[in-house]
Design a protein around this nucleic acid. Structure first.
Lengths: 154, 154
DNA sequence: ATGAGTGCAAATGCTTTGCATCCTG
DNA sequence: CAGGATGCAAAGCATTTGCACTCAT
């Protein structure tokens, strides 16, 4: 049996509707696939998974839909390593840990208010950034922690 | 007249020699081109500039040489936006400001010891990273400040 | 019914690879 | 003079584009 729509999924569909975008079978499938996926999939990966349910879906549609989600502010493209853009449905401020060896990506919630050595995206997003070039208007701050995950460090 | 070799250039060549790599005309040219370049050029850009002095140099050689520099720890590949890897000869800990509109990349020195909301790479590189996944061995922390540069904000 | 959305296939852009040739150490 | 390095061209991926057709609204 098909699983029930998650909260996140429902919200994303709702926002797509509000943005005046048509809810096609392909978009429903992409949203369902990515809404609760914290693995930061690439377009390739999503395409492959979606083949199961929609054998005729094309790459172009996957990219189109992801672009629509990005434009609607429902997910963020991330280039965490060379080769492929990943898509991140987590719209809360957070950073990423990336394993150099296996490529695993793990979300790191930014702890707002904590006197962190790693600042949160929110607290950094306007003031306090040190020595920024004059006139630079900050929109977002990303942090990437590189290293080896538990499995790869054995 | 050809400009005199910079300090940085001389050091890089020295380290390549120490690494047992042959100093070919192509490598000399790549090192000279990148050593004091803080614009974070792509392989394409370097290739185009190098054409002037070495019309027969191939792409493969540019990539080979850059790989050699990276392996020797003399420069770092950076994927700051989708599409192309940039090469960064600055080996001191620092972060980057990236302009969303024109793609300009600006180095931000990490101010070690400052109680910064943006932590320095060094101070973050082992302890203090909040809520890191258990067993994750940190090698480096990157920060990317996204927004609009002075010219693009007009 | 109408225009946004889709599928297909070809094109593009960055990077890698295979192999014969060259040249540094 | 031997093995690393180069040049060339073709192959490999990720992503984009053009266009005729389809379908959600």
């Amino acid at each position: 049996m098909p699983k029930a729509p998650s909260q996140k999924e429902a919200t994303m569909l709702d926002q797509l509707r509000r943005a005046g975008l048509k809810l096609t079978a392909q978009r429903l499938a992409v949203v369902r696939e990515i809404a609760d996926d914290c693995s930061h999939p690439t377009a390739q990966e999503l395409f492959e998974r979606l083949q199961a349910g929609l054998p005729k879906m094309s790459f172009a549609t996957v990219y189109n839909t992801l672009d629509a989600l990005v434009s609607a502010g429902l997910c963020t493209p991330r280039v965490l390593s060379p080769g492929a853009t990943r898509f991140d449905p987590n719209t809360l401020p957070h950073h990423h840990a990336v394993c150099d060896r296996c490529g695993l990506v793990i979300d790191i919630p930014s702890e707002i208010g904590k006197s962190a050595s790693i600042g949160s995206a929110r607290s950094c997003s306007a003031p306090r950034a040190p020595k920024l070039p004059a006139g630079f208007a900050v929109r977002a701050v990303e942090q990437i922690v590189r290293g080896s995950c538990a499995s790869c460090s054995h």
